[in-house]
């Protein structure tokens, strides 16, 4: 599911239906069932047997969706936000700096929405383990169910626990080499890492604490130092999303021509009104034909419109000049959290 390279969609598979950039829906495929979206009605039968990534048309002919294989990133996008999630620019850097490798053992508290847990599980693979702790019971239950549904239960061990009070110890030793703390008071959890066989002290242990406030960082740094952590470093990761577009190239000469055209037509208007007066003055004696002749052909002048003003012009349409540009998303993630990293050297025997 999340950990294989399956190419063909089968009944029972979890797929992510890409409806639009903002609407991605997780669906378990079942024969003879259908998916109703605002873009149409889609039959599961039309998806089963096709390759992942296929574009599927709605039954009524118009409208389509793409059927995608789940990845931690797509899954995070499809989540109804139960808690603030750790977004991919942060989660990717955390995994990188924590030196997480296939077969690593990782401690994570709390589980939250499970978005980071999925990314961690992908990184450690079937030879590693993620020990994740969540103090909120509903969230814990939800996560347990989700990891089971996603066939990740063998990799992820969930514990319902307030680690700041009750520590990390479970029946088996966790012996982790990487720790991620996304807690309101990580400094109360750090000493608990040294109770029981939580850390693998034969190897270097990397830790990351994720806190939104600088005061939290201050307290965390102090406690990390007291417990022998080195190379303490705090960073903030700012991510921006850009989109590529085409912007119409509107030249000054064209602008001048527009003004010339307006001036010309205004003059024509004055002229026409003059003639109209003339026409009405002599109206009685004139036939319809002669009236038209007197007015001249000023009634429906062609307007010079080089940029398709008032028309429905789509980006990149022929007949106009375009330049490539990038536009930033309207609202950026200005601050997610501070990431405090540190390293605990191995104990020497």
């Amino acid at each position: 599911m999340f950990l294989n390279s399956k190419r063909i969609i089968e009944e029972g598979d979890l797929v992510l239906i890409w409806i639009s950039r903002t609407v991605i829906r997780p669906v378990y495929l079942k024969k003879d069932e259908a998916l109703q979206t605002k873009f149409g009605h889609f039959l599961h039968n039309d998806m089963i047997g096709r390759p992942f990534g296929s574009q599927i048309s709605a039954t009524q002919g118009r409208g389509f969706v793409h059927v995608l294989a789940p990845t931690p990133e797509l899954w995070a996008l499809s989540l109804p936000h139960r808690t603030q999630i750790v977004y991919s620019p942060d989660s990717s850097y955390i995994i990188h700096r924590l030196q997480i490798r296939p077969d690593s053992k990782v401690v994570e508290a709390g589980t939250g929405s499970g978005a980071l847990t999925h990314a961690l599980a992908r990184a450690v693979g079937t030879d590693g383990t993620i020990f994740t702790y969540e103090y909120h019971e509903d969230r814990h239950m939800q996560a347990v169910k989700e990891f089971k549904d996603h066939e990740l239960s063998d990799i992820i061990t969930c514990t319902h626990r307030n680690v700041c009070e009750d520590g990390f110890q479970i029946e088996k030793p966790t012996l982790a080499t990487a720790v991620f703390l996304d807690l309101p008071a990580p400094w109360t959890a750090i000493p608990k890492l040294f109770e029981g066989e939580i850390l693998n002290r034969k190897e270097a242990v990397h830790i990351c604490c994720f806190s939104p406030c600088i005061e939290q960082v201050s307290k965390t740094v102090k406690v990390l130092e007291e417990h022998g952590f080195q190379s303490i470093e705090m960073v903030e990761n700012q991510a921006k999303r850009w989109e590529g577009h085409e912007s119409m190239v509107r030249s000054v000469d064209e602008a001048l021509d527009v003004l010339r055209d307006v001036r010309k037509r205004r003059n024509m208007g004055i002229e026409r009104r003059k003639r109209k007066r003339l026409v009405s003055e002599v109206e009685a004696e004139q036939s319809e034909e002669d009236k038209k002749l007197l007015r001249g052909d000023y009634d429906n002048p062609v307007v010079y419109n080089p940029w398709g003003k008032g028309e429905r012009v789509k980006e990149g349409d022929d007949g106009y000049k375009w330049a490539p540009v990038s536009t930033i998303e309207p609202e950026i993630k200005n601050h997610t959290s501070y990431l405090t990293f540190a390293l605990l050297p191995p104990l020497q025997d």
Binding site: S218, V221, E233, M234, A239, K240, E243, G244
Partner: peptide, 23 residues
């Protein structure tokens, strides 16, 4: 390619002395 998107990520490092924390 579905939804081609450009991403820019920048790290900002901080000095971590207590009481003297700043980028």
């Amino acid at each position: 390619v579905l939804a081609p998107t450009i991403m820019e990520t920048r790290l900002r490092k901080f000095q971590t002395l207590p009481g003297r924390m700043h980028p």
